[in-house]
Amino acid sequence: MTTLQLRIKFPPEYPVIYKTLRLDSSFTVQEAIASIGHTINVNPSPDIGLYLPDSKKNLPETQLLSTIDNISTVQYLELKSKKAASSSGNKMKCCSIM
């Protein structure tokens, strides 16, 4: 089992802003989101995804963390609403997480 140490940025509604976590590199994005939620005792809503700010893209739920290019060198991954990321052109501030 290989682990990744990643800095996660959380939505404003969460009890923390950033947290560095160790995640199994064989996790899918969806499994990583569940693990992150479990770690901070928050159940993420179904529209929450992992967003890669460096590439300005949402990560597919079924993608393995180990297959994400340069994941170990990114400054942080963002846990955020997929709807907010897809509507960045209109600068929509979104959504209730809980």
Rank of each mutant, 00 (worst) to 15 (best):
I71S: 04
Q5M: 10
D24E: 12
T3I: 01
D24R: 12
V16Y: 09
K19Y: 06
E31D: 14
A32Y: 03
S87V: 06
S87T: 08
S66V: 04
Y51S: 05
K80W: 01
K91V: 10
L59I: 15
V16N: 05
A34G: 12
N41F: 15
L79S: 07
P60F: 15
K91P: 00
E78G: 11
Q75C: 09
C94H: 13
V74T: 11
T62E: 00
K19Q: 08
Y51P: 02
K82V: 12
E78W: 00
C95H: 11
M98L: 14
S86P: 09
S81W: 06
L21M: 15
G89Y: 05
K9H: 10
K19M: 11
Y51K: 11
S45A: 15
T20N: 14
K83S: 12
P11C: 13
G37D: 13
K9L: 15
S66F: 05
I8E: 14
L64N: 15
A34P: 01
K19G: 09
K91R: 12
L50N: 08
N41V: 11
L79C: 10
S87L: 13
P11S: 02
S35A: 12
I8P: 03
P11F: 07
L77M: 04
N58R: 05
T2K: 09
N43Q: 15
E78R: 06
L21R: 03
T2V: 08
S72C: 01
I48K: 02
V16G: 04
K91F: 02
E78I: 01
G49Q: 08
L4W: 05
N70A: 14
A32D: 06
N43E: 14
V42I: 12
S87P: 00
K56Q: 15
S96L: 14
T67S: 12
L59P: 02
A85T: 09
L6D: 06
K80S: 12
E61C: 04
A85P: 03
S87I: 07
S25E: 03
T3W: 00
I71C: 08
I36G: 13
S66W: 00
S96D: 13
L6T: 00
K83Y: 10
I33Y: 10
S45V: 10
N43L: 05
I40H: 06
N90D: 13
F10Q: 05
L6E: 04
T2E: 13
Q75M: 07
S35Q: 08
N41T: 09
T62D: 06
F27R: 04
L50T: 03
T2M: 08
A85C: 08
L77H: 02
M1Q: 01
L64S: 03
Q5E: 13
L50Y: 02
L23W: 03
A85Y: 11
D54P: 01
G89N: 09
D54V: 11
N58Y: 02
Q5T: 13
L4M: 14
I17Q: 05
S81R: 07
A85H: 09
K9I: 07
Q63A: 13
P44M: 08
I40Q: 03
P12D: 10
T2G: 02
